[in-house]
């Protein structure tokens, strides 16, 4: 069994396997909307490989982090503007 990691997505407790991306943690938490576009539309991940910037979230207070590129760490605090 892979090791599990616990973190928070919008204040909710989520567990994922070590090596999972933050995007995976969002999906596990049932969150499909990562951010609001400049006109306020809901947006989720698109490219999966770090080029489109649609999956941006706030991680530990730092804005504009690409959730598809960043691996989960224990006790991470993830916020979306969904």
């Amino acid at each position: 069994m892979p090791e599990r990691i616990a973190l928070h997505v919008n204040g909710r407790h989520v567990e994922v396997d070590r090596g999972s991306t933050v995007l995976a943690a969002l999906a596990v938490a049932g969150v499909a909307i990562c951010r609001r576009s400049v006109q306020g539309e809901p947006r989720g991940a698109l490219c999966g490989i770090g080029v489109c910037f649609e999956c941006r979230v706030t991680i530990d207070g730092v804005a504009h982090r690409r959730s598809c590129q960043i691996l989960c760490r224990e006790a991470m605090e993830v916020r979306t503007d969904g």
């Binding site: 994922v16 396997d17 090596g19 999972s20 991306t21 995007l23 995976a24 943690a25 999906a27 596990v28 991940a45 999966g48 490989i49 598809c68």
Partner: peptide, 9 residues
């Protein structure tokens, strides 16, 4: 595919 490899169910 990349997302699923990253753990998206």
């Amino acid at each position: 595919q990349a997302m699923v490899k990253g753990g998206v169910p």
